[in-house]
Write a protein that binds this DNA or RNA. Sequence first.
RNA 1: GGGCGAUUAGCUCAGCUGGAUAGAGCGCUGGCCUCCGGAGCCAAAGGUCGUGGGUUCGAAUCCCACAUCGCCCUCCA
Length: 574
Amino acid sequence: MRSFGVTLPERNIRMVEKRGCEDGRVIERVRETLFNSAGEIGLEIERNEIQLERPKDLSNGDLSSNIAMLTAVKTRSNPRKLAERIVDKISFDTDFVDRIEIAGPGFINFFFSVKHLTNQVLEINRAKESYGDLDIGRGKRIQIEFVSANPTGPLVLVSARAAAVGNALVNLYRKAGYDVESEYYFNDVGSQVKKLGVSLMARFRQSRGEEIDFPEDGYPGEYLIDIAKQIPIGKGEEWVRLETNKGVNEFTGFALEKMIELIKKDLEFFGISFDLFFRESALHRSNGEIDQLLEIMKEKDVIFENDGALWFRSSDFGDEKDRVVIRGDKSPTYFLADAAYHLNKLRRGYDRVIDIFGPDHHGHLKRLKAASTLFGGDKDWLEILTVQWVRLIENGKEISMSKRGGEYITLNELVSDVGRDAAKFFFLMRKNHAHIDFNLSLARKKSDENPVYYVQYAHARISSVISFASENNVEFPENWECVRLLEEPEEIDLIRKLVVFPQLVEGAVLMNDPNRLTTYVQEIASSFHHFYHICRIVSDNSRLSQARLLLAEATRIVLAESLRLIGVSAPREM
RNA sequence: GGGCGAUUAGCUCAGCUGGAUAGAGCGCUGGCCUCCGGAGCCAAAGGUCGUGGGUUCGAAUCCCACAUCGCCCUCCA
């Protein structure tokens, strides 16, 4: 059930009122009418308290209000009788509402007229891919940071999931009228990165025939062997001869550039792009954000010294204990750098910032939010979402991944195996914060069992029918009056599902929940197949054919746009 | 010990910020192409929504407790 009313947070109410599409205007008209009628019989109720829902079961109408049940409690009256009194007072032109029923314990149900519904088919055809565009963001600047995996290895499954989720959110927020920037943060500083350099040096020396042990805590993956081969031999040998620290630095620098290149390639292979790649090293310059943040922390008196290190009193902000920000060796911790990074974001002027974290970062969450309020970020300025682990299941069994052997399944391997579309779709079939068992065997299948193909098939089928119609001289009509001929239950059912799209986008944005789209798109496909089976599109009746062609095209538009939002292709044929 | 999440049909999961008779896919059973793509459609079977309390006109949904499972809890990043 969708509901728009009393329990909604402030910003949600505003959004509902600002919705631009015709469907939204209709909801407002119904709300207005109910408000007036309730006033006439002396009920005291706020406009925004009036909830309007779309019943799950369409036999309960297109819009349903529980106003009578809510007010019955206050006025100690029978909700059904109260509903009757309200309905008696309702008088508006029945252009879009066909009838009003009182049902169940006192629901007031509005049934849209066929005329109104068929008009929506025209609206979708007119709007095309802009159907469902909202202006709830009103141009506010929002930054979405995601993946941000360390440049110490190729991207693995969790990163792939974060990439799919982040990419879908970027698309959704843009569609909702936000000015969105996507960003990837590279931790190109610190001990992990240094380990990368040490590992690469070892690989290089091994490649020159030296029999040395690989460092125990190094990165054992094969990718470093490949990168070692790319080092010009003269250079590499020179670096080996340098004083150890300097030499490692050279290898680190080389490894970093190659890793960043590799990660960007992986992302491109997956079909994910970023507006900006930000490097942590930019924060470390003298009097950069790290220094500035330390100053702020000192001013606010939230810092103390202990054991030669500087600590942040994060326990005062809900963290379980205090955290080191400057280590005994004077180097800043990862946490301090990340907090400084967010200071940098704030200064760039974003109205809101969303971070998508992997599951291994969730302990980091509270202290980062605490830090962001320290330097002036409003409580809701920074929002942190987490995505959970992905387990790969093949033939009903988990594919075990051993960290020690460096045997991760990479993004690249997954996408090569099942394809971009299936990978993205499967990652978006669950809520972000729930674990996923990724069914490899199913994702691989190019058959009806695989939901991605089921949906894409519907799109291809529609495209094919439209071509078929054209070959048989059924074209899109000049005069769109023919949509009035749409009246079969299968046609009306399909239309009713299509018109939900703008609200679906709104809900997905409000709840940061792109997985709603994967469910929706399957429902649309199912309704279309059903309609297709019962109602012949191209027939001897040319006006009816044209009307159904418009409905098919409207379906195609909604399908294609939904798929675009989740980053999945909508093939014309397959 | 502390924290986050999960628990819904045989399996994998939806359930849209509390609504009406809890839905889909797969699997199983039985049907549907002289006709626009059968990668499709229809029908049937299948449920104490983990357990126990609470709030509410109304709870799978919110609150509390408990159980089971997964993950996290470095002066790593």
